[in-house]
Design a protein around this nucleic acid. Structure first.
Lengths: 225, 225
DNA sequence: TAGATTGTTAATCGATTAACAATC
DNA sequence: TAGATTGTTAATCGATTAACAATC
């Protein structure tokens, strides 16, 4: 058996830039731009043109040498690469405040991730309607996932339950979990997990804030001398 | 004037790991562990011990050579480095679904970021109480920021208003913005911004899901032959 | 002491950037 | 054609990992 590198052998840094390219290109498309060079596109994203071309080179064949990229061709090409050329049915598991916020976030739909199920154990939440999708009892989760062919789950349950619910999702056939619980989920390597850590975000911001404030103090002290 | 590197000359990759170290150490502290070696701590975080020591080396003096780290000393040391040894008063700007979810998220407080103000322009939201903090009209934002000495703002307004509100925050003296709008905020370099891009997260997850499904298909085809 | 551990430097690895031939 | 542009390889840069002297 050949070795089966995760992520189709594309580095993570490149994968993370693909959505940014797509977003910018859709914007250009909306205002009627037909062609765009690597330099133009890269500059608008504050990166180097060579990095953009290097990224595209993993997939290849977006243009011909000498000709700029055609927006109308690049947009669907990127959508296919990212895997959203066809809508990806998605579930929200945990209908607390964060789950509700995400359920109400219409961009999820627009970007290719229609919400086909919302689940919770709390009877008070079951039956609530979010943009046309009704919160169901978590007992029905496995059945709905199979029926609706849901592949991606957004996990917003309390940390203590994250692993147990994650195990159920994997057993039900979920292939990608977007985990908002501050827990490292253990899953088989046939399942992709992305951990969204709010605390990491605000703390690394805090570190930079502290540095800025300290520098400011020093500058003022220096002036005072 | 000396050149003033952002982030106190510590690489971003290291900064991002500091909260993970702190979190794990607090967990150890809670179960009464007194000493921990770089190897133990690193293994529990699935990284190399040498990376952990290399990270700590930017700050230095956490232990003496030959002796493991003392949890009781390391926790406050990391809190000081991250800048949360003293609580950092924080504002939530935009009290929509996401803003409400964050306002209800008690971990923010526990991790050193007490919410001292929530603001919105929508009269229907003004007056709502979230864990003891009442949503105020955005007209009062600048005054409250100054009075409460708020340094960090969590920005959850619609993208179209993000830049304008961001400008007001900067003018009011905010030093760090945790931006949830899918917009690249332009701020002076005396202000730190962290962009939280939900779409990037779910799309890079989608890419990996697509790869996994394709590989699965290939494996099944190979078996079928 | 012997074994374990840190702080610190050097080696390795991977990602970014530059360079340039091929092409339009 | 001349200027602009891509695809692709090589050079550079930075982050991770290994190694090891100093220390307990």
């Amino acid at each position: 058996m050949r070795k089966q590198k995760k992520g189709c052998d594309v580095p993570d840094a490149t994968i993370q830039r693909l959505p940014l390219y797509l977003e910018k290109l859709k914007l250009l498309q909306a205002i009627g731009v037909e062609d765009v060079s690597s330099r133009q596109l890269a500059e608008s994203l504050d990166i180097k043109a060579s990095q953009l071309r290097h990224d595209f080179h993993y997939f290849g064949g977006f243009s011909r040498p000498g000709r700029p990229y055609q927006v109308a061709k690049l947009v669907p090409a990127l959508e296919t690469i990212i895997g959203i050329a066809v809508p990806v049915p998605t579930a929200i598991v945990g209908a607390g405040h964060l789950g509700q916020a995400l359920a109400n976030y219409q961009n999820l739909d627009l970007q290719g991730f229609p919400v086909r199920g919302i689940f919770d154990v709390n009877p008070k939440l079951i039956g609530l309607d979010f943009r046309g999708t009704v919160v169901q009892d978590m007992d029905e989760m496995e059945e709905v996932i199979k029926r609706e062919k849901i592949k991606i789950a957004i996990l917003t349950v309390p940390s203590v339950h994250a692993q147990a619910v994650g195990d159920r999702l994997v057993a039900a056939g979920i292939v990608g979990i977007f985990n908002f619980a501050p827990t490292d989920l253990k899953v088989p390597d046939t399942v992709a997990v992305r951990n969204e850590r709010l605390a990491v975000g605000i703390m690394s911001l805090s570190f930079k804030v502290k540095c800025i404030l300290e520098n400011k103090e020093k500058m003022e002290d220096a002036e005072g001398l």
